[in-house]
Amino acid sequence: MIKPISFRLNGKRVNLTTDDERRLLWVLRSDLALTGTKFGCGESLCGACTVLLDGEAVHACSVSLKAVAGKQVTTIEGLAKNGRLHALQQAFLDHHAFQCGFCTSGMILSAYALLLKKPRPSRDQIRQHLEGNLCRCGSHVRILDAIEAVASRKAGVA
């Protein structure tokens, strides 16, 4: 149904009038022109579109706008604060935890959701958490290294 919908996106309020059955991914990428969130499968099978919804990792390709109304959405564009990379972004950069980079936004957001819940996950827990995030380039080892490096730090991640 076409209706006015509002939610917070990377800390800023967004108001839209559109079909509330639409999936968040297309609204982000097309209506709001935030293209850091990627399309890889469209059916919750690859994790490329992972964003945070009230701090939980969700697949934007499967979440309807209805489910987003009134909530907080964080995308890759919202991670760096005041021009400073988030610790996870910095770690991905330092470890070269990507090749083509197409899975990277989803990987970082998935990891972020994990660290918000569990600041010191083990390598195995990180692995398990990322099982639904696919990377065709085979950057897995470095992705684990990068996240582990952040997880083993004293400072928080938020």
Binding site: R29, A33, L34, T35, G36, T37, K38, F39, T75, I76, E77, L79, A80, L85, Q89, Q90, F92, L93, H96, F98, G101, F102, T104, S105, I108
Partner: peptide, 19 residues
């Protein structure tokens, strides 16, 4: 890597991001 900053910030443009 020269493509690192763009790729970890989501700013890297792929064909579908032409806009």
């Amino acid at each position: 890597r020269k493509d690192a900053l763009e790729k970890v910030t989501g700013r890297a443009k792929y064909a579908a991001d032409t806009g």
